[in-house]
Nucleic acid binder design. Structure first.
Lengths: 204, 204
DNA sequence: TCGTGTGAAGTGATTCACAGCG
DNA sequence: CGCTGTGAATCACTTCACACGA
């Protein structure tokens, strides 16, 4: 199996999200043109993407919504539960803990880590907040798939080091800092300032 | 002037962020190789990007940090203050209001809108929270550059409609929904579930 | 005929290789 | 030399055009 590009993966996840809505509406089949209409992409691109996961469409009918969703999820996720560990329970971290969308997408936050004593040992939306020092132990026990960094910039590299040391190979970084990690670790940077400005600049 | 791609813009903003740090450290000049080392990109790409904004480097010395930052900012931002209006003051919206990074990047949140009466008229981090119904009036008065959608999915299209009606041409959307807007409006979607899963999938 | 699947063509982005300049 | 700037080549992605199957 060849490595899928980051772009195809993001679109595939968008298809899964869309199919989820359609399935909720009891829609049994969907054409690439309908998916294109909902997602804002083109029908050809959607067919091309889907074909790279193995063919599942029926000419003149389209795709079976449930089957397509399962095909995509199985192909790109491989497992039923993706475990997340969160570093930093400030405003953004708390927002992530309370984010309602994760359940549907097989995502579970298994632990959060903080240095602020007032927050340690609290339970937020069912997730336990631990002292940062407990991270190595806890990460060793429950192998997590993704480490999320929502700590202040000064501590973001420390958080990254903890995540890397635990063997986790994927990081989502909200700190406006470029982190140093081994090349086998994948980082997805989300710098809110850059995202906002990029949205604006693109139209200038 | 030709239209810059979204990718170049994001990288340029990353250079600005990096230059900001270097300037804070009193560094006067920087080479493309150093920038490459800090940002994780290649030196050639950085030179190519910079050259598309007009040449400013000196052979054997590199770029003047202050001058380069100014060139990039002036070229892509065009103005000194980028105004943001926020829709939704839930967990994520509050995190955005309290996000410390905006000041440095010429971003200012000028108003927030909510339906929850308990939050209306409050001041969060210096930003006034208004009833959603006030949005058309307020947006008309203070022309904002970016509308940020952090409301529950069900109301995200309504928020988008208000933003579009006000004449704002850039939207950052955190709701896991594909919004319908005229083609001259640029939307940047940030679906946390998709971002998290994409970070994970890319390594599988 | 309608909608899928896909090789081929086209477009856009990145990397290479090297010219130019202090 | 060391570092920038850039045409040329390569690579990646998207769109086109059309074959095929129910």
């Amino acid at each position: 199996m060849r490595k899928l590009s980051s772009k195809i993966i993001s679109r595939a996840l968008l298809y899964v999200r869309t199919l989820d809505v359609l399935i909720g509406k009891e829609k049994k089949t969907v054409s690439s043109a309908e998916l294109a209409d909902i997602t804002g992409l083109t029908d050809v691109q959607i067919r091309k993407d889907i074909s790279s996961f193995g063919k599942v469409g029926t000419p003149r009918v389209g795709y079976d919504t449930g089957e397509l969703k399962k095909t995509l999820e199985d192909f790109i996720l491989h497992k039923n539960v993706i475990k997340v560990a969160l570093f930093g329970v400030g405003n953004l971290g708390t927002a992530i803990l309370k984010y309602p969308g994760f359940g549907k997408q097989r995502l579970t936050i298994v632990a959060a880590f903080e240095t602020n004593k007032k927050k340690i040992d609290k339970l937020i939306n069912g997730v336990r907040v631990y002292a940062l020092e407990k991270a190595p132990d806890i990460l060793k026990k429950s192998r997590v798939d993704i480490g999320v960094i929502a700590v202040p910039s000064e501590y973001s590299q420390d958080a990254a080091d903890l995540i890397v040391a635990s063997g986790t190979k994927s990081i989502v970084n909200f700190a406006p800092v470029t982190l140093n990690v081994p090349k086998e670790v994948n980082i997805r940077d989300i710098d809110l300032s850059i995202e906002f400005l990029a949205a604006y600049c693109y139209n200038q």
